[in-house]
């Protein structure tokens, strides 16, 4: 029979996730009926699957080597580097390279069904541009340029994330260099990231491909309302006329 310790060790070595003892025990006892004949690796796999859908405040260890410093937000600190691997979950993602208003317009295009193939509407035309540019535009009856905006993919970021560690400490993360998988449509709320020796400047975590590993996952109970409420939140923010 596989011991909880073995499984915890396996999860730590494959995913660098320090699973909480209590959570693991609960997991094992809930699946105890079948557990006897399942090999440790398979059991670890199904535990990881559950972990990625869980709230890490309940499922991961709060040991101080696996969490963010509590004073991480201190804006007086110009720069510091954190040590080790720290798992966090995504609570919010925003595109700060694109105006709120154009993000709202992109959502509305989708609401009107214009993201459906053949239902795209060309809304802007470049007039008297460079011949190369205007030709590209002409070709745009169906294609690429319009498609990105019509499908609601608003922009290329950079993105501003709100991240939370196992102890519940929240911090803002800034995508300093393009990271694959960090995008409004791709990254679910509750997705898990692993931070590796990340830098912090003025209270903001600096995210780059070297300092971030995407583990994936999603917290359904957070993701669904986040998506449904996104337009309303954007509208509310623009109502203040200026964004600061």
């Amino acid at each position: 029979m596989t011991s909880p310790d073995q499984i915890a060790a396996q999860i730590l070595s494959t995913k660098s996730l320090p699973v909480s003892q209590t959570w693991l025990n609960a997991f094992l006892s809930s699946s105890s009926t079948a557990q006897r004949n399942i090999p440790a690796s398979a059991l670890a796999k199904s535990a990881i699957f559950r972990l990625l859908a869980s709230d890490i405040r309940e499922s991961l260890s709060k040991h101080r080597s696996y969490v963010l410093p509590v004073d991480i937000h201190n804006p007086a600190v110009q720069e510091r580097r954190l040590q080790g691997s720290i798992p966090v979950q995504v609570l919010d993602i925003e595109d700060i390279g694109t105006s709120l208003w154009s993000q709202i317009e992109a959502i509305e295009r989708v609401e009107r069904g214009e993201a459906i193939r053949g239902r795209e509407i060309v809304r802007t035309i470049a007039i008297g541009e460079d011949p190369e540019a205007s030709e590209n535009n002409r070709a745009n009856n169906n294609p690429a340029n319009g498609a990105a905006s019509a499908s609601g993919n608003s922009g290329y970021g950079p993105h501003r994330l709100i991240l939370q560690d196992a102890a519940g400490t929240m911090v803002m993360g800034i995508e300093m260099q393009r990271i694959d998988g960090i995008a409004l449509e791709k990254l679910a709320i509750g997705a898990k990231l692993l931070l590796r020796n990340p830098s912090v400047a003025r209270g903001m975590l600096l995210l780059s491909p070297e300092s971030v590993t995407l583990l994936g996952g999603k917290i359904e109970a957070l993701d669904k309302p986040w998506r449904e409420g996104r337009k309303a939140r954007l509208l509310e923010k623009t109502a203040g006329v200026e964004r600061e």
Binding site: I96, P158, R160, I174, R202
Partner: peptide
């Protein structure tokens, strides 16, 4: 990046 919509980030 042309410009961003977050002053604190740009300052940093």
């Amino acid at each position: 990046r042309v410009h961003l919509f977050d002053r604190a980030v740009v300052t940093m």
